[in-house]
């Protein structure tokens, strides 16, 4: 019966503002992430000459890669109006599979790592789309289960990776540039093409903009949602592989808390949790902001026990500035 009643709203008369003031505010909103990034870079490079050195920049890039790759998948999930809390656990699961198969498969351990990630995402997507359980709950449960699987098989002990070819390819450098960064650039390009140039990308946005509208317009919402979670899982598979290669081991704790950093990266990049809109560029900026903030605070020697406070404040501040309140009626 609720479908026959129009949405219950207060009266939502938009207040009129002079056009130039509005566009200035829009500009601030749009350019805030890049401004924030530039400010952080400026502050840290003034505070420590080490920050801008090539070596440190490569370290930042390497640190950013795992977060960024996981956040790429998360961008699709959030634009579609869902959430994926299981990415950290899938990363750990994929790293475990990579570690377990690297000795026998060498560089081809990428295949099982990606497959396990995609499979974990498929399970999430099936339960969300077919079981009609909210993604927050599904992936909260999945996070615990996948992490539990890792714990069960590792018994808490790290599994080391020492296959030379594997380590060379996934954590080596060419001309000083880490391979993981090159891989991330490929994945960024693929994600940007998918989101912006394909019909799939439009369907993702349509579902986030209005799931019932998308459904009634003939979009196969279930299939698209499953594909989104598989994509997120696949990205986590890659992130797990790269993280395992970098640490030369898979541990049960690997990727803990990564889901929250990935969500933060997406949101700081200007993609609202309400879905419908968002961009890959934003997510890249968001991931860089979060990584540079951590790296910079370490380099300038900020009290490690104080760092989390700064990190949390920056997250809320940036959403405070970038959120478009006109388009979001209710802030939950």
């Amino acid at each position: 019966m609720s479908s026959t009643k129009p949405t219950v709203t207060g009266h939502s008369e938009t207040t009129q503002r002079p056009a130039d003031a509005r566009s200035r505010r829009d500009d601030i909103r749009r350019f805030f992430p890049i401004l924030l990034l530039l400010v952080l870079v400026a502050v840290f490079s003034l505070a420590s000459p080490r920050f801008l050195q090539f070596n440190n920049l490569m370290i930042v890039a390497q640190q950013a890669v795992v977060l960024l790759v996981a956040a790429l998948g998360m961008t699709f999930v959030i634009i579609a109006g869902s959430i994926d809390l299981s990415v950290g656990a899938i990363v750990a699961l994929a790293a475990l599979v990579a570690a377990a198969t690297a000795a026998s498969l060498g560089i081809y351990a990428i295949v099982p790592a990606c497959l396990i990630g995609a499979a974990a995402g498929l399970v999430n997507g099936m339960v969300v789309a077919k079981g009609k359980v909210p993604s927050f709950i599904v992936t909260l449960g999945a996070m615990v289960v996948y992490r539990g699987i890792v714990l069960f098989f590792t018994r808490g002990a790290p599994i080391s990776i020492d296959d030379e070819r594997f380590l060379d390819l996934y954590s080596g450098r060419t001309a000083g540039i880490p391979h993981s960064v090159l891989i991330a650039i490929l994945l960024i390009a693929a994600a940007a093409v998918m989101l912006n140039l394909t019909v799939f990308g439009r369907e993702v946005r349509a579902i986030g903009g209005g799931e019932r509208i998308a459904l009634l317009t003939g979009i196969r919402v279930d299939r698209v949602k499953i594909a989104i979670f598989v994509l997120s899982g696949l990205m986590c598979g890659m992130a797990g592989l790269l993280q395992g290669a970098r640490a030369m081991a898979a541990t049960a704790q690997l990727g803990e808390g990564l889901e929250l950093d990935a969500i933060a990266a997406v949101v700081v990049g200007g993609t609202p949790l309400t879905g419908g809109v968002g961009s890959i560029q934003g997510t890249i900026l968001g991931a860089l902001i979060i990584t540079i903030l951590s790296n910079g605070m370490n380099i300038v020697g900020l009290d490690p026990y104080f760092q989390n406070i700064v990190k949390g404040l920056v997250l809320v501040l940036s959403v405070f500035v970038t959120i478009d309140r006109k388009k979001i009626g209710i802030i939950k």
């Binding site: 394909t198 439009r202 946005r205 349509a206 903009g209 003939g218 419908g276 388009k327």
Partner: peptide, 28 residues
Amino acid sequence: RTTEGLIVDASVLDNLVMAKPPRRGPFF
């Protein structure tokens, strides 16, 4: 109209072609 028919935040074009987006392979 606004909860089932079209996405008000999307462009007129986005809504008009939503049911059958013109495509070349997977691309829009």
